[in-house]
Write a protein that binds this DNA or RNA. Structure first.
Length: 264
DNA sequence: GTAAATGTTCGGGC
DNA sequence: AGCCCGAACATTTA
């Protein structure tokens, strides 16, 4: 599920516990989501620390406990965060459960493409600081975007939009939405885009991200009416503008839908 | 039974 | 040293 706005929605699901101390941590230590971290180290380090901070950037989330313990979460393809009452019983895919004074914070992920990180230090960890500004932020400038595109000239633009090092938070449906709204065909080589197309791409990226945040981040509502989003999931989909049947192909390794009439 | 799913990461080729 | 492609990861659902 989770792209930029869904990630922000899930991040907030843990807010009910802010300020409360950790009483106990329960985890399935041998699962893939804990690759590269000492799962038991997390339990020991969090015990008695207050849940003190919560941030999202692109598809990454960062949670702070006390002053120096940092838990990073990436939701992968099927990850979710939620809060539960203390008495709940974790099920098979609840890999990490942080019990606080009155609520339990749960990370669930059936496919386990998601990931939990753990760092100790007085500053946010290195991996977090390296995440670039996502398109809805002021600091995502057209110049910055153009410089990134220049490094991936041979990739189809659809594949370039999926690179988290330049378009933090963009995933498969948002990339298709951005290209449709910018009227650019997904298979176009990144290096062949003309200046007016770059301008449309930049505006579309910012607009789609902002509106998606507005619609989804607070209550997981639907994206605006008239978006490609509502059509792109079925192979019966049509262009919201004039009902032309959408084209479908694998581009950049992912299923891509576009309107052959609007997007050139 | 088979295919596909809102995502990364690795290894190999260029 | 980059860049680019395809396979791999693990599970559920259509």
């Amino acid at each position: 599920m989770p792209e930029l706005a869904e990630v922000e929605y899930y991040r907030k699901q843990w807010n009910t516990g802010l300020g409360q101390p950790v009483t106990r941590v329960e985890l399935h230590d041998q699962t893939r989501v804990f690759r590269d971290v000492d799962a038991h180290g997390i339990s020991a380090a969090l015990r008695d620390q207050p849940f003190s901070g919560s941030w999202a950037r692109g598809k990454q989330m960062l949670f702070q406990f006390g002053r120096k313990a940092w838990v990073g979460v990436h939701l992968g393809m099927t990850g979710k965060l939620r809060s539960e009452a203390l008495k709940f019983r974790p099920d098979k895919h609840d890999h990490l459960v942080i019990f606080l004074r009155t609520v339990a914070l749960v990370f669930q992920d059936a496919r386990q493409f998601g990931r939990v990180r753990f760092d100790v230090g007085s500053e946010p960890p290195e991996w977090w600081r390296k995440i670039p500004a996502p398109p809805h932020e002021q600091t995502f400038t057209k110049k910055m975007m153009a410089a990134f595109l220049a490094r991936h000239q041979r990739l189809p633009i659809k594949a370039t939009l999926l690179l988290q090092t330049g378009f933090a938070g963009i995933g498969n449906w948002m990339a298709d939405e951005i290209l449709w709204q910018a009227r650019i065909a997904p298979h176009r080589k990144t290096g062949n885009l003309q200046p007016d197309e770059l301008d449309r791409l930049w505006r579309s990226a910012r607009s789609v991200c902002r509106k998606a945040m507005g619609a989804i981040a607070s209550d997981f509502g639907d994206p605006p009416r008239g978006w490609l989003f509502h059509e792109r999931w079925s192979r019966k989909g049509v262009c919201p503008k004039h009902r032309t049947p959408l084209k479908c192909a694998t581009i950049g390794g992912r299923t891509t839908a576009w309107c052959p009439q609007c997007q050139k």
